[in-house]
Write a protein that binds this DNA or RNA. Sequence first.
DNA 1: TTGACATATTCCTGTATCGACATATGATAG
DNA 2: CTATCATATGTCGATACAGGAATATGTCAA
Lengths: 115, 115
Amino acid sequence: MARATTTSDVFNAVAEPKRREIVVLLAASKPQTVGELVGSMDLAQPAVSKHLAVLRSVGIVNVEKRGKERLYSLNPQSLKPLHDWVHPFEKLWTSQLDRIKRRAEKMAAERAAKN
Amino acid sequence: MARATTTSDVFNAVAEPKRREIVVLLAASKPQTVGELVGSMDLAQPAVSKHLAVLRSVGIVNVEKRGKERLYSLNPQSLKPLHDWVHPFEKLWTSQLDRIKRRAEKMAAERAAKN
DNA sequence: TTGACATATTCCTGTATCGACATATGATAG
DNA sequence: CTATCATATGTCGATACAGGAATATGTCAA
């Protein structure tokens, strides 16, 4: 078996940094044209279009035709599975008890480093 | 340029379903042996060991030698970057305003489907 | 129709999986 | 020391990228 497709999953789609960048850009400013995205991305147009195709295929972005341009917009709900998976882990590092634990471990590590 | 390494990033490491499964298993029950993980995973031991190696290399899990066994434990903080990236998007789908917006879009889509 | 512009698609190359299988390493008991 | 158990590592085959370059598609204006 080989590596999973980038289009198989929100997790895989978003594993690529440039695609995350696109998501952030679309979240910051409202619907944008491919050209606008290219303008703010240091990546050639074909590459951007391909990334957009991946994001489209997993439902992260929507397209709307507007003359010869295409307006891409973010579909935030699509990121919910990612959020739902990672969110429960938050309590494992925010609890007071855990912060004490980490502090102790850190001190132990420093102690060990001196010997 | 090819696809990024699975060990290059928490995002890439966690893009693989089996590795997410391991993370969940380690979060549920405390430190576990490779054998225990294999026992609850429908995947051969070498494959599990390799996934653990990937998770180790990005700091998602820690190992501790215990005789001939190795105890793997979760390092939850390592997931923080993932959480920090996705969390801001939550408000885009939980706000009352946005729920109304989605509702309207859905109705428009149904209307369009009838025509 | 023709040309110009915006975007998508195709082809190519180098690289990195993932799992199965076989084998190496390492620790412990007897 | 040797056999055994737990885990790690290496090899192989099929697969899938990501970006560059070239080209196709589609839309508008004159």
